[in-house]
Simulated assay, not measured.
Amino acid sequence: MARTTPPRPVAVETLFPEVAAFRKVAVRLHPRIGEPGARDSSLGGPALWPPSQQWPHCGDDHPHTAYSAPADEPVPLVPVLQLFAADVPDLDFPTGTDLLQVLWCPFDHEDGYVPRPEIFWRDISGSDLAPAAPPRPSGADSDYLPDPCVLHPERVTDYPNWDLPEDIANALEARFEQLEEETGRSYWYHLSVSDGIKVGGYPTWTQEPNWPTCPTCSRRMDHLLTINSSEFDGESWRTWLPVEDTPAEGTIWDLAFEERMQVQCSPGLMLGDMGGIYLFECPSCADRPFACRSDCS
């Protein structure tokens, strides 16, 4: 079943033409519990891997938290996201590649106390890829081990919230407030940045932006993708709850907790108290440098 974000309740660029120049395309992935195969785009599903390559492990030191990594033992990374170019044509794949894989170490790391991701770009036609059977790390928090989900990619438009230039935000403040008084809709929650796990667009920051700088060319890196704890929250659901998941009666909050969580938090992730992990890259540099950031609500 496709997932469709409702149209915004107002014409954003008509009311606020100042934000039009900052419009970006995002692809909401809408993960839902399922049985993806190794040759499907998925979140938390089985992955392809070259049999000739050892499965990657994390050799970092991990802080002592409630779920501690095995002492003096490398931790196998876990598959988080696998995206084929055919399913996300808006994603800027490096020349000669058509598969993006995101793996992470499912233990806290000092920088943000969240998992540490790694990314891999591959060419499915020219690579020796086969379904992998990676080892599972012992003692990891289930909040960092995504449940297998199929994806329902959907192209949407993002406008900046935290990333809206301060002078423009200040100039629009009174009009934003007027709209909220008249319609009950907030630019910041309902009209700007799309929620959920997505490719492109703007990061769904829950704190002030923390954009990384490319170590090679010193330009600000591009947002590659966001892995969020939820598809929407208690305020944003009125815009970002898909039509197909909208209850016939009442609202999403009238559903039983377990039923709501199947829509709101299908993969079962909890990152920094309903926060997110944001992946960035520099497509201007040949080696596509990669960085990540995280925050919490």
Rank of each mutant, 00 (worst) to 15 (best):
A133M: 13
P6K: 04
A2D: 14
G37R: 15
C149E: 07
R288V: 10
R122T: 04
F280E: 01
Q101E: 13
T213H: 13
F176V: 01
P135G: 11
Q262L: 15
R32E: 12
L48I: 08
Y113Q: 13
W104I: 11
P203Q: 10
L48A: 02
H30E: 03
D141Q: 11
R220G: 10
A86P: 04
G139F: 05
V25W: 05
D92L: 08
E173N: 09
N170P: 00
T5K: 02
W188E: 03
N161I: 01
T183A: 02
F84E: 03
P289E: 05
R155W: 03
R155H: 07
D40C: 11
E258V: 14
R175C: 09
A174Q: 13
V88K: 01
Q264L: 11
P106C: 09
D92N: 07
W49R: 06
W104H: 10
W104M: 12
L164E: 03
W121A: 03
D158L: 04
A38M: 15
H190M: 02
N210I: 07
Q82C: 08
D222Q: 14
R116C: 07
T14V: 08
A85Q: 14
D143G: 12
A248S: 11
M274T: 14
T213F: 08
S230V: 10
P203W: 04
G44C: 15
E182N: 04
G275A: 07
C282A: 05
S218C: 14
E173T: 10
Y187M: 00
S138I: 11
C296Y: 13
G112I: 13
A66D: 14
W162S: 01
L191I: 03
L129G: 05
Y67C: 12
S138W: 06
A248T: 06
P135D: 10
S138A: 13
T216W: 06
P215S: 10
P36R: 12
S266N: 11
